[in-house]
Design a protein around this nucleic acid. Structure first.
Length: 981
DNA sequence: ACAGAAGCTTA
DNA sequence: GTAAGCTTCTGTT
């Protein structure tokens, strides 16, 4: 090697993990072999070998090698046995790819370097040093922070997935320190992935700041006593050794003995036939073609190679990844060949889904290409273009997350990927203006723009697409626009992937499916104190952000919609998700009336009660302290007063949970009892009586909750701001809160709730004769269970016996464990275990159901409700027994909880139509609490409304499904929620 | 200003 | 033992 030569070192082990997690995990060869990471790897190698000059690196390599980890044991383990000890096994479908990547490297005729006892990083450090000494430059193909310590004048790094070169300034930007201080930085901050301890409590930010101040780790440790922050100074002094040892772990060894000479790494022109043979085996058609063209080889004449693959333990088993694609067309890079069968079936849903994915990943989002529409003629032209296209994604930009309070700042449209625009309506110039900034010139008057938009939004022949449509629906409705027809990308994702990593927000979906990170809201509007409303954002920035949202939404829709068909989930989306959006939007807009006076009076009562208890508590404790601090309370109870401490929390604190305090109270201690009472009162006050009035809308004078459709794994809704699904009911004190939820004068609240819906669903799905009979006869289900289990007649049954049976019934629904049941009933685990055994003897069908459900979940990675909704549990095959058991219980629960959720969703979708048909125009659905619906109705409609409501709810499963067990609904009306319930 | 732990409310 | 959301305290920025 000589001056001017350029060595490329690929971190092969790092690349495979990165590619696996970054690329949509779906690429498979036609025989099912997962090859996504291999595909990415081959593309990357080819690109760098052929035209590295066109990448961000901008130079052509003369020397090239791929470096791998040899095994997990290295000299670092001798230094620190815990090093990388908490690494879990790689994902199953990644395992066969390790071997394939080495095969790929050899097929490219590249040196494949690994050495026992050393990590790839050490070899990379060694070669980089040798190249430097020979006068050459080095580019390390990796973005791993562990390698950044090597960056310098002759050494840079390159992130092939972002096409970004990492040099000294990039390291400083990312970590706040120059490369030569990376070792000290990592020594301080540690690394949970590699199990490097670092100094507890010191993170990246603090570490960089300390190094900035003191220069390096040795100086820092020597002068640690100068640190002002008490806590920080002490932990640094205390953890000195840990820091020094961590430094040795992160320091790379740049003198690994007996490495190959640099001259053996000279880049050779690729051996076309050999490489093509391998690529054909992998079914990477696009790359095969490119290589054939570049090397002048006739690909058709070359046979696929025989490649020995190390299959994982169960590589033919199920694919537990986000979206397993059976069709091999589904290459992330468009690089996996269609089998002949697939080619013939180009019109299949799977082929379309795969093609759309390939298109999405290939297409780059260009945020500089968007239009800002500032005159009505241009807007009309865009609207006409959208009408011709028949599909348009839109998004509203507003001043608030609450659509009831928000003001519309503008809206964006996307017609095709990349063709997107923003229409500002009321943007104002920012601060600096004495008059607070006036309206920016050159915006279409809002009324005029919305009048032009309305026909498009309401055009039955144009599909409108939004992400989290409910918000935009409310916004548009407030401006007199009723959007239809529509699709919601968030809901499509939810139907496809409930329970799969990440949420269903746009940013997460964009990362996952498009490989694109959209501009963060906080980068546009700031956060915290510097937060500004969207109407104050300048038009250029606003256009980039808003149009990108519409663009990304459209691209996501193109990827996701075909997958619904492919997975057979169209009817779940069409019947349980999409039609619920306007229903919930209306419920949110209606809100419910809450009586301020009642809450205010309750708040006063609670304050008095709590104050009285506080005095008594200080008396008993002998000192004043913060009662609400579990830490201080624990110290007093179990430290100073020496009470027998029960359990510890996971951070090592004494637990002061209600259970622990109740146990102490039962032994006759006065203080714990008072604490429990105090907590109840302060909880009611702070969470309900004090907080609820703040949610009363200034204009409607009602409380408008927000329902999330895509928040749970099982299909339940969730409610927030405020959460009206956890209003107290169990204690008399708590129930008083419900008296504040009232009907308008002349109206009543109707509460209709399903009786035992989850046990009924269980009786249906597990088909248990005794349960079916009991529900058909309308007998007390818990008493019946007790009677079966303990051979006691139902008449004259002691309350305790029924209570235990009830706990077991609930336990079954939750995926019972002896541990949990024992806790619930405060009985020994053995006794709980014998109850469960007894239960399964009496109801063997339930055990069969549970085992079958677990097996299904293990096999498929998800479970299904009776209407076909899927809940994913990707961790059900975790090697960690407690994670696995947790996922098994959740898998047992999800079909039951989820089926009940589906049933009430169906009822809600039909409810408004049924009420209208019955002439009950003023009976309005207000709230949903999982198995209960709350309505408000004029007194004159209540009598007629109740049978209609009951009928819709009890027959909600029909006609899709005929339940083997009748559904039963209790309904009553009153002036407030407490009495109606 | 924010994040995590602990605790508590519901179905 | 399932599924959620909110408040307080505590430590950190």
């Amino acid at each position: 090697m000589k001056k001017g030569d350029h060595l490329f070192l690929v971190d092969g082990s790092g690349y495979i993990f990165r590619a696996y997690h970054a690329l949509p995990p779906l690429t498979r060869k036609s025989d099912g072999l997962p090859v996504g990471a291999v595909s990415g790897f081959c593309n990357m190698l080819w690109k760098l070998m052929q035209n590295a000059r066109d990448t961000d690196v901008g130079v052509t390599p003369t020397h090239f090698a791929v470096i791998f980890d040899y095994s997990s044991h290295t000299f670092r383990n001798d230094l620190y046995p815990e090093y990388k000890a908490n690494r879990s096994a790689p994902p199953e479908d990644l395992i066969p790819q390790f071997g394939l990547i080495r095969h790929a490297t050899k097929a490219f005729d590249l040196p494949c370097i690994e050495m026992e006892g050393f990590e790839a990083d050490d070899l990379i450090a060694t070669y980089a040093r040798l190249a430097h000494e020979a006068g050459g430059d080095t580019t390390i193909i990796s973005s791993d922070k562990d390698l950044m310590q090597l960056v310098g004048p002759t050494v840079s790094m390159y992130d092939p997935m972002k096409d970004k070169e990492i040099k000294v300034p990039e390291v400083i930007e990312k970590w706040g320190v120059p490369p030569e201080k990376m070792i000290d930085l990592q020594a301080l901050m540690g690394d949970s992935v590699d199990n490097i301890p670092g100094v507890p409590g010191i993170g990246q930010k603090t570490a960089a700041q300390l190094l900035e101040e003191f220069g390096d780790l040795d100086t820092l440790l020597a002068r640690a006593d100068e640190i002002k922050q008490n806590k920080r100074r002490e932990t640094l002094i205390e953890n000195r050794e840990k820091a020094l040892m961590s430094r040795e772990l992160v320091r790379l060894m740049n003198d690994v003995p007996d490495v190959d000479a640099l001259d053996t790494l000279v880049l050779q022109p690729p051996n076309g036939p050999k490489l093509i043979s391998f690529l054909k085996t992998m079914e990477f058609t696009t790359l095969t073609r490119r290589v054939a063209e570049a090397s002048g080889t006739e690909a058709a004449e070359i046979e696929p190679a025989h490649v020995d693959v190390q299959w994982g333990a169960d590589a033919h088993g199920p694919d537990l990844t986000a979206a397993p694609v059976s069709d091999p067309e589904a290459a992330s890079s468009g690089d996996v060949a269609p089998t002949p069968e697939a080619r013939e079936a180009q019109n299949t849903p799977a082929a379309l889904a795969a093609a759309r994915l390939a298109e999405a990943v290939a297409g780059k989002v260009d945020t500089t290409a968007y239009t800002c529409i500032r005159d009505i003629a241009t807007l009309r032209a865009w609207i006409e273009e959208a009408r011709e296209e028949g599909v348009v994604a839109f998004d509203t930009e507003t001043t608030s997350l609450d659509p009831m309070q928000a003001e519309l700042c503008g809206f964006s449209l996307a017609i095709r990927p990349g063709r997107a625009a923003y229409v500002p309506l009321i943007h104002k110039s920012g601060a600096g203006d004495l008059l607070g900034g006036g309206q920016i010139e050159g915006q279409i008057p809002a009324r005029e723009a919305l009048a032009a938009l309305k026909p498009l939004m309401e055009d039955r022949s144009v599909l409108k697409i939004a992400q989290n449509l409910k918000y935009d629906l409310v916004m548009m409705h407030r401006h007199g626009i009723d959007v239809a027809p529509y699709d919601d990308t968030m809901l499509i994702s939810y139907v496809l992937d409930a329970g799969v990593f990440g949420g269903h927000g746009m940013d997460a979906l964009s990362e996952r499916w498009l490989g694109h990170t959209p501009i963060a809201f906080k980068d546009v509007c700031g956060s915290g104190k510097s937060l500004i409303t969207f109407d104050l954002v300048d038009l250029e920035k606003a256009t980039t952000y808003a149009a990108e949202d519409a663009d990304v939404t459209l691209r996501l829709w193109r990827v996701l919609k075909p997958r619904l068909v492919e997975k057979g989930l169209v009817s779940v989306y069409e019947r349980l998700e999409r039609p619920l959006v306007p229903v919930l939007a209306r419920m949110e807009q209606r809100g419910i009336s809450v009586d301020r006076q009642i809450l205010s009076r309750l708040s006063g009562d609670l304050a008095q009660g709590a104050a009285a208890l506080e005095d008594e508590i200080y008396q008993l404790a002998g000192e004043r302290f913060t009662i609400g601090s579990p830490k201080q309370l624990g110290d007093i109870l179990f430290g100073r007063m020496g009470l027998p401490g029960g359990s510890k929390t996971k951070t090592g604190q004494w637990s002061t949970s209600a259970q622990v305090l109740e146990d102490l109270a039962a032994e006759g201690h006065e203080l714990p009892r008072k604490i429990v009472d105090w907590r109840q009162l302060t909880k009611l006050k702070s969470t309900y009586t004090d907080a609820l009035p703040g949610y009363i809308h200034p204009e409607t004078k009602r409380v408008h909750t927000s329902y999330a459709l895509a928040a749970t794994t099982t299909g339940r809704l969730s409610s927030s701001e405020p959460n009206l699904q956890n209003i107290p009911v169990r204690t008399a004190e708590g129930r008083k809160i419900r008296t504040a939820f009232i009907a308008e004068p002349g109206n009543l609240l109707i509460s209709a709730d399903y009786s035992q819906i989850e046990l009924r669903v269980l009786a249906h799905v597990a088909d248990i004769p005794q349960l079916r009979q009991a529900f058909a006869d309308g007998v007390d289900i818990h008493a019946m269970t007790a009677s079966e289990m303990f051979s006691v007649p139902v008449e004259g049954m002691p309350g305790e016996v029924r209570r235990r049976a009830k706990a077991i019934n609930f336990g079954i629904i939750y995926g019972i464990s002896a541990f949990g049941l024992a806790n619930q009933l405060s009985i020994p685990r053995e006794e709980a275990g014998s109850y469960i055994k007894k239960y399964f003897e009496r109801f063997p069908g339930i055990r069969d159901y549970m085992e079958a459900t677990k097996a299904f979940a293990r096999e498929n990675g998800y479970v299904e409700t009776i209407f076909g909704r899927r809940a994913h549990y990707p961790e059900i095959r975790s090697p960690n027994p407690s994670i696995r058991a947790f996922n098994e219980r959740a898998s047992i629960n999800a079909p039951i909880q989820g089926s009940a959720a589906d049933i009430i969703r169906r009822a809600m979708v039909r409810m408004e139509g049924a009420l209208e048909k019955a002439g009950l125009e003023n009976t309005r659905m207000l709230l949903q609490v999982h198995d209960e619906l709350i309505f408000e109705a004029p007194e004159g409609e209540v009598e007629r409304a109740i049978p209609v409501i009951r009928d819709v709810m009890e027959n909600a499963a029909m006609p899709a499904l005929s339940m083997k067990v009748p559904l039963h609904v209790d309904a009553r009306a009153a002036h407030n929620w407490d009495e109606a319930h």
